[in-house]
């Protein structure tokens, strides 16, 4: 059983992103949506939390939310895969259960 975690908060405003990372297990995935996508950007104070990850957790960010916020895909950390809403749906079906870090 593996969990898809969603995070919709900026890591600079709320602890949801940090709390999420502390509660992931091997084989889990994290999908950044809404203001959560700011955590996917290269060169920020929290970028190490993603780039330095152990690789056991897959990372995704929602493309439409990145685009809306003026973040180009080239600004996104390489280990983060960008998906659209269809990809979001696929992730929900691929993982056994989802947990929203509101």
């Amino acid at each position: 059983m593996s969990v898809l975690h969603t995070v919709n908060k900026s890591p600079f405003e709320k602890a949801a992103f940090e709390s999420c990372l502390k509660h992931t297990g091997p084989g889990d995935a994290v999908l950044l949506i809404e203001d959560g996508v700011y955590a996917a950007v290269k060169g920020t104070a929290v970028a190490d939390r993603i780039a330095g990850g152990n690789g056991a957790v897959s990372l995704y960010a929602l493309g439409p939310d990145l685009a809306a916020r003026g973040i180009t895909e080239s600004a996104v950390i390489e280990t983060v895969k960008v998906v659209d809403y269809g990809g979001f749906v696929d992730l929900i079906t691929e993982y056994d259960v989802s947990q929203a870090w509101l």
Partner: peptide, 15 residues
């Protein structure tokens, strides 16, 4: 231990 507790669920309702 929490990751395993979450992974064992069918439904997680978060508030």
């Amino acid at each position: 231990e929490f990751a395993a507790i979450m992974a064992a669920q069918d439904v997680i309702l978060s508030f």
